[in-house]
């Protein structure tokens, strides 16, 4: 038997492997994605009836509906991404390996991001149709990406943290919503302005704050994730 050399693998390759594994499992199991899409569509439709959408307020209310949908979907995805691993103690398989703990964080972050994006690809066009809003504006797409990322950055960290606690499925949103408040608020605000066709001066404060929040949560995750791993 030839001895295989165990080199220290590069971080990007590990992140890629984690992403590939999550995606493949998901596409074969189809447990999560289909449910998420249906759930997100339901949210969009229910709000359509729950709120009286006049032309004048459609941009501001619509942006809120869009973000509530994304936040709910992302929370479910986070819970699921971590719960699936726990069922077979698969997270321990990751921790056993000589990989940077941060690579595991980024792998999970990107998996969650990819799942939410896949759902968004279906749901956002439907939303645009039902609410008659110009969601495809490049700036709005940038807000969608940055906002989703901004929610998942602390979300992934807190999901790893809640995974060890009792009642973790309920605990995650309780922990995450108040922390992610700046991201949600600035993303909603930025979307409102973009959808209403405002000039950049009116969009800029919320947009810049969104970028700043993303950077701060990224820095915190990089600094703190090691603390969540036992050894």
């Amino acid at each position: 038997m030839r001895a295989a050399m165990a080199r220290k693998p590069r971080m990007l390759r590990v992140i890629g492997a984690l992403l590939w594994k999550d995606l493949l499992s998901e596409l074969r199991g189809r447990a999560l994605l289909a449910a998420l899409v249906v759930f997100a569509l339901l949210t969009v439709v229910v709000f359509n009836y729950a709120l009286d959408l006049e032309r004048t307020v459609r941009a501001s209310v619509g942006a809120g509906v869009l973000w509530v949908t994304i936040v709910f979907t992302a929370t479910l995805a986070l819970n699921r991404v971590f719960a699936a691993e726990r069922e077979h103690a698969l997270h321990e398989g990751l921790l056993l390996a000589p990989v940077e703990r941060l690579a595991i964080y980024f792998g999970k972050l990107l998996s969650g991001f990819l799942f939410v994006l896949l759902v968004a690809v279906v749901v956002v066009p439907v939303f645009a149709l039902l609410y008659d809003l110009p969601v495809a504006r490049p700036l709005n797409l940038a807000v969608l990406l940055l906002g989703t990322l901004g929610y998942l950055l602390p979300g992934t960290l807190l999901a790893a943290l809640a995974a060890h606690a009792r009642a973790r499925e309920v605990l995650l949103p309780v922990l995450l919503f108040p922390v992610a408040m700046p991201v949600i608020l600035s993303a909603v605000r930025a979307s409102q302005e973009v959808l209403a066709g405002s000039a950049w001066v009116r969009i800029a404060p919320a947009f810049n704050l969104l970028v700043a929040s993303d950077i701060i949560f990224l820095a915190l995750a990089v600094l703190l994730f090691d603390q969540l791993v036992d050894a």
């Binding site: 606690a165 704050l209 915190l220 603390q227």
Partner: peptide, 28 residues
């Protein structure tokens, strides 16, 4: 041990997010 460590991590994130929230609501 884990409780202390995890709580401290959450405490740091929570504390950092408060001024950001304040800034976000200030936009209104």
């Amino acid at each position: 041990q884990r409780r202390g460590r995890f709580a401290a991590v959450y405490g740091v994130i929570a504390f950092a997010s408060v001024p950001l929230t304040f800034a976000a609501i200030r936009i209104f």
